[in-house]
Each structure stands twice: as C-alpha cells, then as structure tokens.
Design a protein around this nucleic acid. Structure first.
Lengths: 108, 108
DNA sequence: CTAACATGTGAACACCTATTCACTTGTTAG
DNA sequence: CTAACAAGTGAATAGGTGTTCACATGTTAG
C-alpha cells in the first residue's frame, strides 16, 4: 500500500530512502559495501584490502548494518559481513549502468 | 572493461558512484528528484508543491543536473526538469523494494 | 525602452559527519 | 588465570554542506 501513487512516497519512506542513499554516498563507505557485496568478508580483511584502519571500518559497518545494507556473522574471533539482500547489488548495478551510458536514446 | 571483476570498480568510478548516491541522500533533494521522475515539471511548481523556496530548488537542481540525474528543457519563462533516464527510476524502485521487505529469505 | 515574472547564483552561517586516537569488549590459545 | 588478537566504541576535531538572503540574469508583455 503506497501512500498515493507510484513516486508520491510518504514522508517517513522518503527519510528512510534518503538515509540509505546517504550511507552509500560516502566513497569510503561505498568501497566497504562493494567489498561485502561479492562475498562475506572479515572486518580486518576489509581494512587491509582497502588500506583503512579497523576502527574506521567498524564505524562504517555499524551504520551500514543499522540500515540493513549489510549483515554480520561471527566466526570465532572474526566477524564476516556481507550484503543484506539482492536489492543492494541491484541498486549498485543500475547506478553503474547510469554511469556507463552518458547519453543514450533507447529509453521507452 | 572493468578494472578487475564485477564489483571491483575502479576508483574514479567509485567516486562518481558515491557522488550520485550522495546527491540522492538528502531528503529535500530526493523529494525534488521524485517530483521530476513522474513528468517534466517547472522549478516554481516544484517549489510550491514541496513548499520550498525557488532559490533552494534551483541550487539543488543545479547539482542534480550536473550529475545528470535530471535534465532541463526551457519553455518560455519556465524551465522544466525531468529524470535523466530510466536508471534513476530503477534505482529508486529497487531501494523502495529494499525498504518494503525488512527481512526476506527468498534470495537465490 | 520598462515592468513583471521565472530562474540562477554567490556568500555566509549553522549544522552535520567522516576520521583519528585511545580505550574497551570479546574470543581463542597457552 | 594471562597474553594476544579481532572487533567495537566514545570523544574530539576538521572539513563539508544544506539552507537562507540578497542580488543577478534571462524572458515575455506592454
């Protein structure tokens, strides 16, 4: 049940939507998401792979997990993070296509 | 040619990707985009519809147009803005689905 | 030309946030 | 138990940014 019609999203939904985009809007955080979207990966592996401090990665991961963009799973000392669901990778792909096609004329 | 594999996007692409998400990450700007995505709409109509100042709408519209999220078309005194391409609405839809489904287990 | 309207723009301010540092919590091994 | 490693957290700071205000630009009508 949407509020009125397709894109007339109600205010709380807009706030939530904006929050999700906002989280993906930081380059460092986006890199972390991209590192998680392929396969589950530990915090320390993200940090070393992206050349970031573990502290910084944890801070971002907390926000991403709170917004349910990523999910966590403990295995011994390490905690593995992965993309929460398929919508995330879908959004990422659509945006990459948008970048790839500067000015196309095959809409409709 | 991507840099390595699917989600190992090269750095300039990440910056561009993050920039797009960042623009959608502000609630006011997101509302403006949503107002444009349905049909072309004039700046003053966006402003009155969303109860914002024309100045503020113009500021946001400039950023959105620079990132090619929206495109502009002049008609007399007014300038009509609309979504740049189908990828934008696609991203919006995917994110809305992500919000709609809190915790689904039907992936793969 | 001038007047009125629509849009664009620059500067300033208040607010937010990404990052770092120091530290704590939790887990495994001995 | 302690030691070592992985992850999480709180505070503080530097930089970024959304908003407003005043003004400039552009367009149409007379």
């Amino acid at each position: 049940m949407s509020c009125q019609h397709d894109y007339s999203v109600c205010d709380p939904a807009i706030a939530q939507l904006a929050d999700l985009f906002h989280l993906l809007g930081d380059p460092t955080r986006l890199r972390i998401v991209l590192a998680c979207v392929t396969a589950p990966i530990a915090v320390s592996d993200i940090a070393s792979s992206l050349e970031l401090s573990s502290s910084l990665v944890s801070h971002h991961l907390r926000l991403l997990r709170a917004a349910r963009i990523v999910k966590s799973e403990r295995q011994g000392k390490q905690v593995f993070y992965s993309a929460a669901d398929a919508h995330i990778s879908g959004v990422l792909n659509d945006m990459l296509e948008h970048i790839a096609e500067p000015s196309n004329g095959h809409e409709a």
